[in-house]
Design a protein around this nucleic acid. Structure first.
Lengths: 345, 345
DNA sequence: GACGGGAGTGGGAGCGCTCCCAACGGTGAT
DNA sequence: ATCACCGTTGGGAGCGCTCCCACTCCCGTC
C-alpha cells in the first residue's frame, strides 16, 4: 500500500557493486579505493571516485562491520549518578573533546548510561558481542568491576581519572596534585599567610591528590602543617558550609581557603557571609572545576580548571591507538590544570 | 604471532547457527525465538532459550542490521554551540530521559555533535546511508536545514522545542507560555503589584512564548500592559544586568521581575544589589531553567523548571512510534512546566 | 627472447542474520 | 476415510561488504 517504508527503503541506495559497474571495474577495486589502499592506479581511482560521486554512494556500515569484523564505533560509558552530579561542564567538556577527535574518522560515538548492575552486565555482554571497538569510561569508582571485565575480554578501553596512584588501567587524568599546589602557591603569593583547605571525600583519589598538593605547597613555603587547617568535606555544598564553620571555629585567623570543589566553595562562601567575613578582603577563596557557578558567584570565584576537552581528546587518541594495536604499553597520561583567576582571591 | 587480535576475535562468539545446532532446531526457529515471534511452540522455545543461555549467545548486531535493513540505533543531534551553552541541566536531563526510554529496547543512542555546515552535510549523508532508524534534534534554530533534509529522505525525526507556533515538524516542547503565566501569577499572588519582565531574544519562539505568558497573566489580573515594564535581553547574564538597570530607571516602583532565564536573573540580581535593592524584600525575582545557579544564588532563585527528562522520554517514544510506522500523524506534544519556589520570591 | 616479479585487478567465498517459501504433521469437517 | 487447513518448522537465498587468491600485464634482466 504505502510507497515508502522505514526510511529510504532498501532499493534506494547505490551499492558498491553498482559503483563498480558504473566505473567499469571490479568490486575489489572499488573497495580498495574506498579504504585508501595504495594498490590502485591513479586513473582507476579517479574513475571510481567519479562514479561514487555520481551515484552519491555511501558505504553501508553494517555490511562493512559484518565483513571486516569491526564495529567502527566506540562507547562512552557514564555511570548514571555521575551524569547528574557532573552534569555541569564536565560531561559536555569531555564529550566535546571525544567528538572532536572522532570528527575525521568514521567512528561513531555511542553513549551509554549505566544505572544498575544489571545494565552494567548488559553492557559488558554488548561489548563482548563486539559491537564496539573500544570503550571510554568516565568517573570510575574503586569497586566498579567494569574495567576488569573489559580487560578480561580483551576490549580496548581507557578511563578518565585514576582510582589510585598506581592505576594500571590505561587512563587520562589531570594533575590534581600539581593543580592544588598551584592554587595554594597563588594564595601564598598574594600575601595570604594562613591558608586552610576543605578536602573532598578522601576515598577518592582526586581528593587525596588535592590534599597532598595543598600540603606540599604549604611545606615548601615553610608553613607549619597545621592539622587545624584541614577540614573534610564530600564535594557537596552543605559539607563546604559545615567545614568552613568548623575551620573558622578552630582558626579564626585564617585568611584563605582552598576548596577541593566549587560547590564546597559556594557553601564556604555562605558560611563566611554568615560570620561577617568578606571575600576576598578577609578570606580569599579558591575552588576547583571552574563551573558556571564559579563565574556567577559573588565575588566570582578563582578556580582550578581541568582541561576537559583536551582530556576527551587524549582519551580518544589513546583508545584509537590501542584499537589499532599501536599501543606499546598501557597509556598513562596526566594533563596539567590551569588556575582561572577571579576576584575571590 | 599474537594470539588475539582486536578484541574477542572472530572465532570466539557463538552464532545463531551454533545455537540452532545445540537446540536441535533450524536457524529460522532460533531467529523466531529471539525476535519473539508467537509462531513457536513452548517446548521448542524453552529448548532454544536454554541453548542461548548455555552458549552465552549474543546476536550480532551488524548482521541483523544488514539482513533486516534496520539500524537499531537512533541519533541525538546536538548543534555544537548549544552543547556549550546548554551544558547545564538541559543536555544531561534530555539524555537521561532518552536513555531511560531506550533502556529496555536494544536500540543504541548515537551522539552527534554538529559544529559546521560540513558536518551537518556529513550527518545527513550518514542518515541517508540508513545507519540510524531515526533522529532526535535538540535546540533547532529557525534556519537549520536539517529537519527539511531529514523529512526529504523520509527519515523519522523528532525535535525538542518548536521554531514557531505552527511548527509542523514532529516535536516535544514544554509549555513556555503557561509556565510564564504561572510564574507571574505566583508573583501577583504573593502581593506584588508591579511585575516587570526581562525577555529572551524574541527571534526565538520560546522567548516569545514567555513574554506572551507574562502579558496574558498581567492582563488577566487587570494590570495595565505597561510597555515600560518589558525589557529585552538575550538570555545572557550581561543582558539581564543591563535590562534590570533600564527597567529600574523607567519604573523605580517595580517590585517583581520575571526573567526569561536564570542567567539573566543572575545579572538582574547583580544590578539590584548595585542599586541597593534587596531580594526578595524590595524586588522579587523569578527565573527560568532551574539551573544549578538558581539553587546557589543568594537568595536561592525561584525558577521555572522544564521537565527535561520527561521531554527526553516523550521524544523517544514519539520517535519509536514513528519508526514503527505507528504514528498516525506527526507528534506534537507540549509538556507542562513546574515552578520551583525558593526564597527569591 | 625467455623469465622472474611487482603492480594492478577481478571476483569467489563468506561474515551472521532475517525473510520467506515450502513442507510436515495433526486436526476437524465433510 | 478424505481433504482442506493451520500451527510449526527447516533451510535457501540473499543483505553489502571485505578478504584474499588468482590472474593479467608490463617491466627490467640475464
Amino acid at each position: 500500500m504505502t510507497m515508502v517504508r522505514r526510511g529510504s527503503g532498501r532499493g534506494g541506495r547505490p551499492t558498491l557493486e553498482q559503483v563498480a559497474a558504473r566505473a567499469g571495474v571490479g568490486r575489489g577495486t572499488v573497495s580498495r579505493v574506498i579504504n585508501g589502499s595504495p594498490r590502485v592506479s591513479d586513473r582507476t581511482r579517479a574513475a571510481v571516485e567519479r562514479a561514487i560521486k555520481d551515484l552519491g554512494y555511501v558505504p553501508h556500515q553494517a555490511a562493512r562491520t559484518l565483513a571486516a569484523n569491526r564495529a567502527d564505533a566506540i562507547a562512552l560509558v557514564v555511570p548514571e549518578p555521575e551524569a547528574r552530579l557532573f552534569a555541569e561542564p564536565y560531561f559536555s567538556g569531555i564529550i566535546r573533546g571525544v567528538s572532536a577527535e572522532l570528527a575525521d574518522t568514521d567512528i561513531q560515538l555511542l553513549l551509554t548510561l549505566i544505572r544498575t548492575p544489571k545494565e552494567r552486565q548488559r553492557f559488558a555482554q554488548y561489548a563482548s558481542g563486539h559491537r564496539v571497538d573500544g570503550v571510554l569510561m568516565v568517573s570510575v569508582h574503586g569497586e566498579d568491576p567494569l574495567p576488569d571485565e573489559l580487560s578480561r575480554i580483551g576490549m580496548p578501553a581507557v578511563m578518565n581519572g585514576r582510582r589510585s596512584a598506581e592505576e594500571s588501567f590505561p587512563h587520562v587524568d589531570c594533575d590534581n596534585f600539581g593543580g592544588a599546589q598551584l592554587a595554594v602557591e597563588h594564595l601564598l603569593g598574594r600575601g595570604r599567610r594562613t591558608v586552610a583547605t576543605i578536602t573532598g571525600p578522601l576515598d577518592m583519589y582526586a581528593a587525596q591528590c588535592r590534599l597532598e598538593g595543598y600540603r606540599e605547597a604549604m611545606r615548601a613555603a615553610g608553613r607549619p602543617d597545621a592539622a587545624a587547617l584541614v577540614a573534610h568535606g564530600d564535594f557537596s555544598e552543605e559539607s563546604g558550609h559545615a567545614a568552613m564553620h568548623e575551620l573558622l571555629g578552630r582558626r579564626p585567623d585564617l585568611d584563605a581557603v582552598f576548596c577541593a570543589s566549587d560547590l564546597m566553595a559556594v557553601g564556604a562562601r555562605r558560611a563566611l557571609r554568615e560570620l561577617g567575613r568578606s571575600v576576598p578582603e578577609d578570606v580569599a577563596l579558591v575552588g576547583v572545576d571552574d563551573s558556571a557557578m564559579a563565574r556567577h558567584m559573588d565575588p566570582p570565584l578563582t578556580s582550578l580548571r581541568q582541561p576537559l576537552e583536551e582530556m576527551g581528546r587524549a582519551m580518544t587518541r589513546a583508545l584509537l591507538a590501542q584499537i589499532r594495536g599501536e599501543a606499546k604499553e598501557s597509556a598513562r597520561m596526566v594533563l596539567p590544570t590551569e588556575l582561572v583567576r577571579r576576584t575571590s582571591s
